[in-house]
Design a protein around this nucleic acid. Sequence first.
DNA 1: GCTCCAGATCGACAGCCATCGATCTAAGAG
DNA 2: CTCTTAGATCGATGGCTGTCGATCTGGAGC
Lengths: 125, 125
Amino acid sequence: MAVDLELTPKQKAPAGAPCCAPVVYPDVERAQAERMAAIAKALGDPVRLQLVDVLRKHAGKVCVCELVPLFDLSQPTVSHHLKVLRQAGIVGSERQGLWAYYYVNGQALHELSAWLTPRGAEERA
Amino acid sequence: MAVDLELTPKQKAPAGAPCCAPVVYPDVERAQAERMAAIAKALGDPVRLQLVDVLRKHAGKVCVCELVPLFDLSQPTVSHHLKVLRQAGIVGSERQGLWAYYYVNGQALHELSAWLTPRGAEERA
DNA sequence: GCTCCAGATCGACAGCCATCGATCTAAGAG
DNA sequence: CTCTTAGATCGATGGCTGTCGATCTGGAGC
């Protein structure tokens, strides 16, 4: 851990020179960052996060008709949130007759979780 | 966890009755959901997620002047993103003379990570 | 004092997003 | 076939958000 980096700039930049080195950041991370951000963004709404929470607690497939009354929201809105979660790969759905059942795809959540805790607190990649 | 729930609705709702029980959801979760969603939302932008990534890798405090050239963005925009992260409690800042140094507050990330993995991961995929 | 620099804030603007009512689709019941 | 129900989609709308240039703040150096 800990790149050798100790409050780098020590004094004012001389003239028109940039105060700090560019510190080019390998964009190997960029693709992964986009993916992680997409997952996080999908979870970035209290309603969607609660939807995931409910689906996860039920551990099995849950009917949409059970999800709608949990929130003080219209059915189209809940449907919209489920769609967002589906497109982010966080949940999956399955239709059986009139009803649609949703379930959590643990993979996506695990991906984000793994990024959040990169092995033993912090460590270089 | 696994609540006993197996594809609840078996047949069409009779008349004007709702098809499923409301399944009242304890809003004890609601406060936590808002908190988790706020953290996730702050991470829901690729730039902010990369900022956190960089700060984390450096393990120490990093000067803003080093962060700006990492992205093809104006200084006010980077400053804005840092502010969002700060307000979400994900990063902290410290000013020293002309420079401002940012660092990751592991707590917030750990909170979200803990919520994402509520114990023994998941079994289905 | 004055000047320059680092960084935050402001104001504006475009694009996105959560929400709704209305509508569409498909399936079960009669 | 007809009616009803579950759910998705559409269209509109108001609010939020990412971005920028311009400006403000305050410390460093002269």
